[in-house]
């Protein structure tokens, strides 16, 4: 059966959010295609991880457990995917557009000669006609992605080669439990059948991975600052407002590049995608790459001293003024009137 596979990333025994988001998307695509959703976890000490996966609707969880398979290195993981896919012939394979997925996906796609689409922002099922070759295709994966620095959005298809492979960034798809008691099958694979000793050519000597402390993705309110905030000092105003109204602080890339905020706070095409109920954009001009990551916010307030800033066109409230002037007023009103 040509099923849909999701490669699940795991760190400290926890399946990455991006993988759960892809399982959710994969579930709905699999329903449309009438095929199974299969998850693949490669690592060490994997006993029981299927419990984190089944609620998202996986029909099968493949576990490849070997202490040499953690931490991740390219070739051993690639070999598992390549050999397993030769055997199972999936029609689709999804993985996170993370430093792991973007290292692994291309290597696997090259070995299988199957197309890989990077950083998709939407995945749909549809038909395709190749007029030149006089062929038509049903049930292809439409892989929709921005390219060209965010200036265009392209729909990419892989008509002939399988699996159709795509990577997706964290936060782009929604994660949703299908049922806490969803039942699937666990299949333990023998690592030595898929990986050879000669795959272990890169060794990890040192590794410092921080757990993400900042979680802007699920924050209901985001106060985001741009280059217009002016300094790291001024960014404190944003933290004050955020602490007052129960929000998280986000940032544009220009603000991150200028050192006003940490990289994990970056919102946009090359940062995270957010959809809070309220987004307050402070000193952000609203370039395409930023808007791509926050346009689905339910309500947007723009604070900018330029009445013609592009962000204003998508804002529900446009406040023409400076961050230094407006934020203290908001904090003051809320502190006086909230209790």
């Amino acid at each position: 059966m040509n099923n849909l596979f999701v490669y699940c990333e795991i760190e400290d025994g926890i399946i990455a959010d991006v993988s759960l988001e892809l399982l959710t998307k994969g579930r709905s695509l699999a329903n449309q295609l009438n095929c199974k959703l299969e998850a693949l976890v490669i690592g060490s000490n994997l006993d029981g991880v299927e419990k984190q996966i089944f609620p998202y609707g996986a029909d099968t969880v493949y576990l490849v457990d070997d202490k040499r398979l953690y931490p991740y290195t390219s070739q051993p993981h690639a070999s598992v995917l390549i050999n397993l896919f030769k055997e199972k012939k999936p029609q689709i394979c999804l993985m996170g557009a993370t430093s792991i997925g973007r290292d692994l996906g291309p290597r696997v796609s090259s070995a299988l000669h199957s197309g890989l689409t990077a950083d998709c922002t939407a995945l749909e099922i549809g038909s395709h006609e190749d007029k030149k070759a006089g062929k038509s295709y049903e049930n292809l994966l439409y892989q929709i992605r921005p390219a060209f620095g965010g200036n265009i959005v392209a729909t990419i298809v892989n008509p002939e080669c399988r699996p159709q492979m795509a990577t997706v960034r964290e936060g782009v798809m929604k994660k949703e439990i299908v049922s806490p008691t969803y039942k699937g099958e666990v299949v333990k694979l023998d690592a030595s059948k898929y990986v050879s000793d000669t795959d272990f050519v890169v060794s990890v000597i040192e590794r410092q991975i921080e757990k993400s402390k900042i979680n802007i993705k699920s924050a209901p309110i985001i106060v985001a600052g741009g280059y217009g905030v002016g300094s790291k000092e001024n960014f404190k105003l944003l933290y004050d407002l955020a602490a007052t109204i129960g929000a998280e602080v986000g940032a544009s890339r220009a603000a991150v590049d200028a050192g006003y905020a940490e990289h994990e706070r970056q919102i946009g095409q090359t940062g995270v995608t957010v959809r809070p109920k309220l987004y307050i954009a402070c000193g952000i001009s609203g370039q395409i790459q930023h808007i791509a990551g926050m346009q689905d916010s339910s309500m947007i307030i723009a604070i900018n001293n330029d009445p013609n800033a592009p962000i204003n066109t998508i804002a529900d409230y446009v406040i023409t003024g400076t961050v230094e002037d407006i934020l203290p007023k908001m904090i003051k009103y809320y502190k006086k009137n909230s209790k």
Partner: peptide, 22 residues
């Protein structure tokens, strides 16, 4: 193996916004 099926320029839908002087 990958074919570009379609390309669109990115245009965002402008909203009707309330303007405040601050």
């Amino acid at each position: 193996p990958t074919k570009v099926k379609q390309i669109e320029n990115v245009v965002f839908q402008a909203k009707e916004s309330k303007k405040l002087s601050g």
